[in-house]
C-alpha cells in the first residue's frame, strides 16, 4: 500500500500527469451533460452508431497518416450525425436500419483498412486502443490534451447557453414546435454536440465505451433526483468523481483508464440504485 501511494505521489509530481487528470475530468464532465437527453430522446442509438463511425474515421485517418486526425474524425462524425438525424426523421424503420448499416459498416471498414494498410508492428494493440481507449491516459500527446480541453469547455458552454431550449425540446418536442421553437435546429445542435462528445471522449475511453461514459452518470442520478436540473448537476458531479477516481486507480495499478472509469461508473450506479430504493421508501 505504501508503495502504491509513493508511486502515486511520484506521478503527481509531474505536471503532465496533472494535465492528463484535468483533461480526463473535463471529458467525463461534458459527456455526462447530455446523458438525460440521450437516454430519453431515443438518441442513444444515434450516439452508438456515431461512435462506430468515429472508429472508422480514426482508421482512415491512421491509414492516410494524417497528423491532426482529431479534426478529420470530428468532421466525419458531425456530417454523419446530420445525415443520421435526417434519415431518422423521414421514416422510422428505415432510419433505424440505416443507423445499424452505417455503424456496423464503419466498424468493419475501419478494421479492414487498419489491417491492410497499417504500418504499425502492433496492429491488435492499435485496434484495441481505438476501441477501448488508451491503455494509459498518460500516453496522450500535448496537442491532444489541449484540443480535448478546449472542445470540452466549448461543449459545456454551449450546453449552458442552450440548457432551457434543450430541456424544452427533450421534454416535449411537439409543444416546443407549436409555440415556435425551431426544434429542427435544436435537434441538429444536440446531434452535433453528441458528435463532439464522442470524438473528445474517444481519446479517453475508446469508441466502444463512450456510451457508458454518457449514459451511466445520468441513469445513476435519475435513480435519486427528480428534476431535470438536479439530475443534470448530479450526473455532472458523478462523472467528475468517477473519472477522477478511475484515473487515479488506473495510474496506481497500471490498469486501462477507460475501462477503469466505466467500472467505477457501474459501481456508482449500484450505489445510487440502493440509495434510490432507500429514498423512495423514506
Amino acid at each position: 500500500m505504501a508503495e502504491l501511494i509513493s508511486k502515486l505521489t511520484l506521478y503527481m509530481s509531474y505536471p503532465f500527469v496533472w494535465y492528463a487528470v484535468i483533461v480526463g475530468v473535463l471529458i467525463a464532465l461534458c459527456s455526462s451533460l447530455l446523458g438525460v437527453t440521450l437516454v430519453l430522446k431515443r438518441f442513444s442509438f444515434i450516439g452508438d452508431g456515431l461512435s462506430h463511425v468515429a472508429f472508422g474515421a480514426m482508421a482512415i485517418a491512421a491509414v492516410l497518416n494524417l497528423s491532426n486526425n482529431i479534426f478529420f474524425v470530428l468532421a466525419v462524425t458531425v456530417i454523419c450525425a446530420i445525415l443520421l438525424l435526417r434519415t431518422g426523421r423521414n421514416t422510422k424503420i428505415k432510419g433505424d436500419a440505416s443507423i445499424a448499416m452505417i455503424s456496423v459498416g464503419a466498424l468493419a471498414v475501419g478494421y479492414l483498412l487498419m489491417n491492410i494498410f497499417s504500418t504499425s508492428s502492433n496492429l491488435s494493440g492499435d485496434v484495441c486502443s481505438t476501441l477501448f481507449g488508451s491503455t494509459s491516459i498518460l500516453t496522450l500527446t500535448g496537442v491532444e490534451v489541449w484540443v480535448c480541453a478546449v472542445l470540452s469547455i466549448l461543449v459545456v458552454a454551449v450546453f449552458i447557453i442552450f440548457y432551457n431550449k434543450i430541456f424544452a425540446v427533450t421534454f416535449d418536442e411537439s409543444f416546443a414546435e407549436a409555440v415556435g421553437t425551431h426544434t429542427g435546429f435544436y435537434n441538429l445542435l444536440i446531434a452535433i454536440i453528441i458528435a463532439f462528445i464522442i470524438v473528445i471522449a474517444m481519446n479517453l475511453v475508446g469508441s466502444l465505451l463512450i456510451s457508458a461514459l454518457v449514459i451511466f452518470p445520468a441513469l445513476s442520478a435519475m435513480r435519486v433526483f427528480k428534476s431535470f436540473k438536479s439530475v443534470t448537476i448530479c450526473s455532472a458531479c458523478i462523472a467528475v468523481f468517477c473519472s477522477l477516481f478511475g484515473i487515479i486507480i488506473s495510474i496506481m495499478f497500471s490498469a486501462p483508464v477507460g475501462a477503469t472509469i466505466v467500472a467505477v461508473d457501474i459501481f456508482m450506479f449500484f450505489v445510487f440504485m440502493v440509495l434510490g430504493k432507500f429514498c423512495g421508501k423514506a
Binding site: F171, S174, V179, S227, F228
Partner: peptide, 30 residues
C-alpha cells in the same frame, strides 16, 4: 407563433422523464 399556447390531448412525454412541475410550467415561456 410567439403568442400561441397549446395543450396536447395526451401527453406524449416519455414516462421516465425527470422534470419538476416548476420546470415544465416555466418551459411554456419559451
Amino acid at each position: 407563433k410567439n403568442g400561441i399556447g397549446y395543450l396536447p390531448q395526451q401527453n406524449m412525454v416519455q414516462r421516465d422523464f425527470p422534470a419538476s412541475v416548476w420546470e415544465i410550467v416555466l418551459s411554456g415561456c419559451q
